[in-house]
Simulated assay, not measured.
Amino acid sequence: MPMPTEERLSQLIAGLVERRGFDLEGVDISTTGKHADAQARLKVIVDSDGPSDLDTIAALSTELSELLDEAGDFGETPYLLEVTTPGVDRPLTADRHWRRARGRKVRVHLREGAQAPEPDGSAKFEARVGELSGDTVALVLGGKHKPHRVRIPVADIAEAVVQVEFAKPGARELELAGGVVPGRPVPGQEDDVPAVDAADVRGSTPLQPESVPASDSPTEGIVE
């Protein structure tokens, strides 16, 4: 049986994800093996304004597993469902991404023709994300030693990617950014929510989940 498309699965699960207070950030399907030995892996990436702890993600994973089993899009092909939050180094492509990235360091690439925020400045630079207001975003330049805030139109930004940090930002730098969004990790002290896997066991040797222990009496088709 052909694998369902990512578009089809996105449409199938989007309503449930939204009702549980999350935004659906992406769906990815990959397969291993051929024919009778084929197995599928479905990765669902979600995010929210509030903190996403392991229990919340695990509960969503269980509900998504039940929904997928009822839909039957995978037929007899065993699959592993992985529900996770975006990685730290993800690009900012929507207003909600900018709001949630407040306090984070980003690598900014301005669109061609856009004015750099500083005289003789480069179109590519690093800054710390501040408040998003209307169609502009505050950025803190100068790092720990000479932090200062500027505002630029979001439309002038061709690409912005959050950077992984291994040291805490300066206190003044973070203050100018408006602090980190409540419930989000402090830069330099990342502790991302681990992915939660739910294994489907139809027609094959069970795929053991990595983060959720198997129960003594699993529901049909799902190891929880």
Rank of each mutant, 00 (worst) to 15 (best):
L110D: 07
G178L: 00
H148L: 10
V180S: 05
D197K: 14
H145T: 13
R151A: 12
V201M: 15
V164R: 10
F125P: 02
G143N: 08
D135G: 08
S122M: 13
P194V: 14
V106I: 13
V108E: 00
G130Q: 01
P185R: 02
I152L: 06
G143V: 03
R149K: 14
Q189F: 08
E175T: 08
G188H: 06
D120I: 09
V196K: 07
V180I: 14
S122D: 14
G143R: 09
V193I: 15
V180N: 09
P119A: 09
E175V: 01
E159Y: 08
A138D: 00
V186Q: 15
A195C: 11
K168W: 14
A171S: 11
A195S: 10
H145V: 13
P119I: 08
R149S: 06
E190C: 05
Q163V: 15
G179C: 01
H145C: 07
P187L: 03
L141S: 12
P194H: 06
V108C: 00
V154R: 08
H145N: 09
G178I: 00
P187G: 06
D191E: 15
P153G: 04
G134E: 06
A114M: 09
K105N: 11
V154M: 06
R107P: 04
D120C: 10
G188R: 01
P153S: 04
F125C: 07
G170E: 05
G142N: 07
P187I: 00
E159W: 07
G178Q: 04
V108T: 00
E190D: 13
V106T: 02
V108M: 00
S122L: 11
G121I: 11
G178R: 02
H145P: 07
Q189I: 06
V129R: 00
I157A: 02
G130I: 00
H148M: 12
S133A: 13
T136E: 04
A158M: 02
K168S: 15
P147C: 03
S133W: 05
V196D: 05
V162Y: 01
E175S: 11
P169S: 07
R149G: 05
A127W: 01
P187M: 06
G183H: 08
A123K: 13
L132D: 01
G134A: 09
L176F: 03
G121L: 09
R151L: 08
V193W: 10
Q189Y: 04
R172D: 07
I152M: 06
R149L: 13
A195P: 06
A171Y: 09
L110M: 12
L110G: 08
D156G: 04
A167N: 07
D200H: 11
A116E: 02
R111Q: 13
R128E: 01
R172N: 13
G143I: 05
A177D: 01
K124V: 13
V201T: 13
V150C: 09
V154Y: 06
S133F: 14
V164N: 05
P194R: 11
Q115Y: 10
K105G: 06
R107T: 07
G142M: 04
P147H: 05
D197C: 15
G183V: 04
A116Q: 02
E131W: 04
K105R: 15
L132A: 11
A138Y: 00
P169D: 04
A167E: 12
I152S: 03
R151T: 12
G130T: 03
K146C: 10
A116N: 02
P117M: 03
F125D: 02
E118Q: 14
V162G: 04
